[in-house]
Design a protein around this nucleic acid. Structure first.
Lengths: 368, 368
DNA sequence: GCAACAAGCTAAATGGATTTAGCTGGCGCA
DNA sequence: TGCGCCAGCTAAATCCATTTAGCTTGTTGC
């Protein structure tokens, strides 16, 4: 099944195979054959051999030798899960790239890689603990399973952890409980009496905290439990499916907190299809990591959007770690809150959860 | 100004500095000092020296030596511009990561890097032509300026080019003219008589083609020129600003083609604010690269969404190039077309461009 | 008093590609 | 014949970190 290990093909092997020297082979493969005056016939033979033997250059060897300019290459990486929303990864990438652009000099260049693992299964990621991969990483979107592994495992490179406390590591987090608490308060203030929260099946440290704080605050302030909807994934369609199911079972809500943005998009679609008006019938609070929230119809109130801020903190911390400086073990980011139309105060029309509580579409708003 | 070149600090320098051997230094810095029985005092001295001299390990050296497992590292990269929409980059990244996950074996590992340049200024990107960086790249989101540079420059690694024909390179493109033509046809069929198109100030080969084909088709089929709106960037707010300006000047349209998705988001917001109904007053056709189009209110008709399909073509091509196989110089992708509510057929209410042609909000739809 | 052993270190080899200096054989020319 | 020169190649050094085998001391056990 598994193919037998075959040692890599090197220029020396090609050289031996053809009865020429490694220097000649190297010259040809590096496209230096003209200035080195290699005979065209030899060039052809070497090219053919490289192709047929399946030669793949060893970049480590190349880099080690090539020392004209930009010798030093600093390898950075963003470690994230396949399941994480791409925009979040994109923001981190963008921030890191911008920093790298500034830091680059004639004799130091940077490479920013992305490394992806399956959520909850970071321990199965091979090569993660190799010391010869990266100078530093930003690690994000881990599940509790992953966190447990990371707490034990000794990552052999500096790392900044996003959204999770890991002992002995530099961590950047959303201020705990803030998002969940504020979103609950906003919904309560908007007059909601039967709010719900929707989250994906997989909870990161951050989303779990949001959920818990939302629940806690609601209980504390109103004595009630929120309806908790669990969607299969984080895509809009997952949220839509979860909500449709809830609705079909006769479940009703008059407020909704979505722990990620993509879920809010799905919820909006469902509400629209069902003729449920925002905010007249349901107030919605989202997270705002996508920069799209204000373009929703109606514009979405958001209590977070901390990803960008967290990344902005994390990147300089990573560079400080690279320089060997000591950094604070923990940085908290307080997310900005944007009150928009989706939570404009209203008297909810839905109280119970049994009868279809919402009037048909187009009915006038109760208040503005 | 520019700091003088300082040769990199190596383990040998640290060793000389302290009067110990490089082997000892290496043992300590690789956290092997316990098993190698290095005296605690020595460990401390070495650590302090490494810190104070600013030691940065040379990964190339490390990788070259470390040959227990996964010796072969294949370095891949996605080259894209800072200005490109992140979701497009994210899709490419995701597709490449999935492929890499499958291709990885015990003795071959992959690293996927992202390299960003400023749109139109790829020639200023240092190290781009170094042969010691990547085994292969996917190159996307270039402007004509960049393309000109690339056509001359000899990239020293295999490359798959997205959305652009470059002689001698493997290119994956949207079927030419398709998107522009279909979007024009859809708007015409929806009854639009004064359609517009909006695009960013910077046009890639792909977006320029969309624009030209849209124009051409419209002229051919109706004898009219479209209104062309140019937005500063590709963000929703840019589109919103451009459209608001057009509106303030008394410009009116009854159909809109947005050459990228993010522009459609901004347009939707403006229409909503102005009380312009989609599709009753304006039909909108977008591109659908973001997977969000069906969640718009109303769901957006899209004529493209080819990025994902293009990436799906490009990734296997890249691996074939790595294996030294010959690949077709050009692969055309025909984007799927999704007809949704935003272009439901209607008789346009706007004909001229001077008087406010749209009735106030809430007026009944003319037809369905 | 000597073997055995441990602690603490070092010398040298290694990995792959590249480059520099230099070698060899054939040719033209005086 | 002999010199210079060129095309076409090769040997060896180099980049940096790591690891293996082994070398000194000093100590313990008998």
């Amino acid at each position: 099944m598994k193919p037998a290990y075959r040692p890599p093909v090197t220029v020396h092997q090609i050289a031996r195979h053809l009865g020429v020297s490694a220097a000649t082979v190297s010259s040809v493969l590096a496209h230096r054959h003209v200035e080195r005056r290699i005979a065209p016939a030899t060039v052809e033979r070497i090219r053919a051999a490289a192709q047929s033997l399946g030669y793949i250059p060893n970049m480590a060897g190349r880099r080690l030798r090539a020392h004209r300019t930009a010798t030093r290459q600093i390898d950075l990486a963003i470690l994230t899960s396949f399941e994480a929303p791409l925009p979040l990864v994109g923001q981190a990438l963008h921030a890191l790239q911008r920093a790298v652009e500034v830091q680059s000099t004639a004799d130091t260049r940077y490479a920013v890689a992305i490394e992806m693992f399956h959520a909850g299964r970071i321990r199965e990621k091979t090569g993660l603990l190799d010391a010869d991969r990266y100078h530093g990483v930003i690690l994000t979107n881990t599940l509790p399973e992953d966190d447990r592994f990371l707490a034990e495992a000794a990552l052999p490179y500096p790392a900044v952890i996003l959204g999770r406390r890991i002992p002995g590591r530099c961590c950047v987090l959303e201020a705990p409980e803030f998002v969940g608490r504020r979103s609950a308060e906003i919904l309560i203030d908007a007059g909601c009496r039967a709010p719900a929260v929707i989250h994906g099946r997989l909870l990161t440290h951050t989303t779990a905290d949001r959920l818990a704080a939302f629940r806690h605050t609601l209980r504390e302030r109103t004595g009630r439990e929120p309806t908790v909807l669990v969607s299969e994934g984080l895509q809009p369609r997952h949220a839509a499916a979860a909500f449709e199911q809830h609705w079909a079972r006769g479940g009703r809500v008059d407020g909704l907190f979505t722990v990620t943005d993509s879920l809010a998009i799905g919820a909006y679609r469902v509400f629209r299809d069902l003729g449920v008006r925002i905010p007249a019938d349901v107030a919605v609070v989202g997270v705002g990591d996508y920069e799209l929230a204000e373009f929703f119809a109606p514009p979405l109130t958001t209590v977070a959007g901390a990803n960008e801020a967290m990344v902005a903190e994390a990147v300089p911390l990573l560079f400080r770690l690279l320089r060997g400086e000591t950094v604070p073990p923990e940085v908290l980011v307080v997310p900005p809150v944007f009150l928009r139309e989706s939570t404009r105060r209203h008297r909810p029309t839905a109280i119970g959860a049994t009868k279809p509580a919402y009037p048909k579409r187009r009915s006038k708003r109760r208040e503005r």
